[in-house]
């Protein structure tokens, strides 16, 4: 078993580019996400027609306002002028015309609401409080657990799946099995070897996310790391298992959408109990669910081991089941 672990580390040492991709590609993707999801402080562009001067004056504090003396009738007015919203009054009341639902129209609506609030402050204003609230405005903070989990799972899955396919294709697997090694040692060595690499990757990702990107972690960073490492180990096992059903590298790549995308749905991006037909229960079959839920509880809700142990246990059980499945599947190549 130790021979296999050493060999895997040796292979990685001699293949610097793979190692670099494993360690730094996730950081690159995370950094990109950080900038994409960060607060862009966008100032919406609004056009008004026949609104009170007081309203327009207040609105100018929240947005760039242009006044139209006549109500524009052209259907492509918003698009053609790069305006996010058009506001006008008639007998029915105040109208707001928006182009489509997106973050720009959301910003326009927010500016209008802020204006209304400033003009008519009421005593019984709605006060909204979140139980779990991150202090930053960055959307990455509230979704960090999804991205941390999915990104590290993805890279490790590809690495272990690919190397197993190559091992079968290059017949080194057969050669390895023509020695007195036990099947359990082959899978054990594989899981441990790639698991170690994956664990290093997890540590690098989490440290980068917390100390460089300054992501909010309410609970313990060490516990996060543990969850990430467990998830990485399950990714190694899933990769090895899937590789059995792939006859070549291309087929393994084709498996990625089948294996990874459904897991993203169950990672906490969509609340699981809103999924119809009980399909949400499928989450128990996806290793990312256990990892991401645990990460969410630690990072957003600040929970500790006492609260998250069922998900940790789920992760460990998953790794165990996959391990046995892989050992059994290896029988295809040697009956002993």
């Amino acid at each position: 078993m130790l021979s296999i672990v050493k060999r895997i580390l040796g292979q990685m040492k001699n293949d610097k580019r793979s190692l670099g991709l494993l360690l730094f590609a996730p950081l690159l993707v995370l950094t990109l996400l950080f900038f994409i999801l960060s607060d862009s402080s966008y100032v919406p562009k609004l056009a008004v027609n026949d609104m009170s001067e007081k309203f327009v004056a207040e609105l100018e504090n929240h947005a760039t306002v242009s006044e139209e003396t006549e109500k524009p009738e052209a259907a492509d007015y918003l698009e053609a002028n790069g305006i996010d919203a058009l506001i006008w009054n008639d007998s029915e009341g105040t109208h707001i015309e928006l182009l489509e639902k997106n973050s720009k129209s959301a910003a326009a609506l927010e500016a209008i609401q802020d204006t209304n609030k400033a003009l008519q402050p009421t005593k019984n204003e709605l006060i909204i409080d979140y139980v779990y609230e991150s202090s930053g405005d960055n959307q990455l903070d509230s979704l960090s657990f999804v991205f941390l989990g999915v990104i590290s799972f993805f890279f490790v899955f590809i690495l272990s799946g690919m190397s197993f396919v190559r091992e079968r294709f290059g017949q080194t697997l057969e050669r390895m099995l023509m020695t007195p090694i036990r099947r359990i040692d082959v899978i054990g060595g594989y899981t441990l070897g790639y698991g170690l690499l994956a664990a290093v990757q997890s540590v690098v990702i989490i440290l980068y996310a917390v100390y460089v990107l300054q992501l909010q972690v309410e609970g313990s960073v060490a516990l996060c790391t543990l969850v990430m490492i467990l998830m990485a180990f399950s990714a190694v096992s899933v990769g090895a298992l899937v590789s059995i059903f792939a006859n070549n590298e291309l087929q393994l790549v084709q498996f990625i959408p089948v294996i990874i995308i459904p897991q993203i749905f169950f990672s906490g991006l969509i609340p699981i109990d809103t999924i119809p037909f009980g399909l949400g229960n499928l989450c128990y079959l996806t290793p990312i669910y256990y990892g991401c839920t645990a990460l969410e509880m630690i990072m957003i809700q600040g929970k500790g081991v006492v609260e998250i142990w069922p998900w940790l246990a789920g992760s460990v059980a998953f790794i165990g089941v996959l391990f046995l499945a892989n050992v059994t599947a290896l029988k295809k190549y040697r009956r002993l």
Partner: peptide, 27 residues
């Protein structure tokens, strides 16, 4: 038994010496 398959069945990212060492370890 010592088995030499028809195609090389060696680890591309390892040196000759490391390949020998790995299989010696398995044996």
């Amino acid at each position: 038994m010592g088995y030499m398959p028809q195609n090389e069945a060696l680890y591309e990212e390892l040196s000759a010496w490391e390949n020998l060492k790995f299989f010696a370890g398995l044996q």
